Amino acid sequence: MFIRRRFGFFKNLKEKIFGSDTNREFVGKDMYGNKYFQIYDPDNFPYKREIEYIEGLHNPKMDPVWAAWLNGREMERPSDKEVEESYGNYLKRKSIGEEFDRKDEEYMKNFRETMKKITKPKQKAYQATSWNPQEKPNKKY
Rank of each mutant, 00 (worst) to 15 (best):
R73V: 05
S86N: 01
Y90R: 00
K29M: 09
G33I: 01
E135W: 09
N34K: 05
E105R: 06
M1W: 08
D30N: 12
G88L: 03
V27F: 03
N110D: 00
V65E: 00
V83H: 09
E106K: 14
E74Q: 08
K48A: 05
G88Q: 02
L70C: 02
F100M: 04
G19C: 14
K81Y: 11
I54G: 06
E25F: 14
E113Q: 15
K61W: 09
F37T: 04
K11Y: 09
Y47G: 11
E25Y: 14
R6Q: 07
W69E: 01
G8M: 01
M75T: 15
Y126L: 11
S79L: 04
D30E: 06
N71S: 10
Q38E: 09
I54D: 02
K136S: 03
I39W: 03
A125K: 15
M1T: 08
R102I: 02
I96G: 08
G56H: 07
V83Q: 07
K35V: 04
Q127W: 12
K14T: 13
H58S: 13
R6T: 14
F9N: 13
D21P: 06
S20M: 07
S95Q: 07
N44W: 05
M31R: 11
P46G: 09
D101Y: 15
K117I: 07
E105W: 08
S79F: 02
K29I: 10
M1C: 04
D21A: 12
R112I: 09
S20N: 11
N110M: 00
E84T: 15
K124T: 10
E50T: 15
P42S: 03
E15Y: 12
K48V: 05
Q127S: 13
M62N: 06
E85C: 06
K136I: 00
M115Y: 10
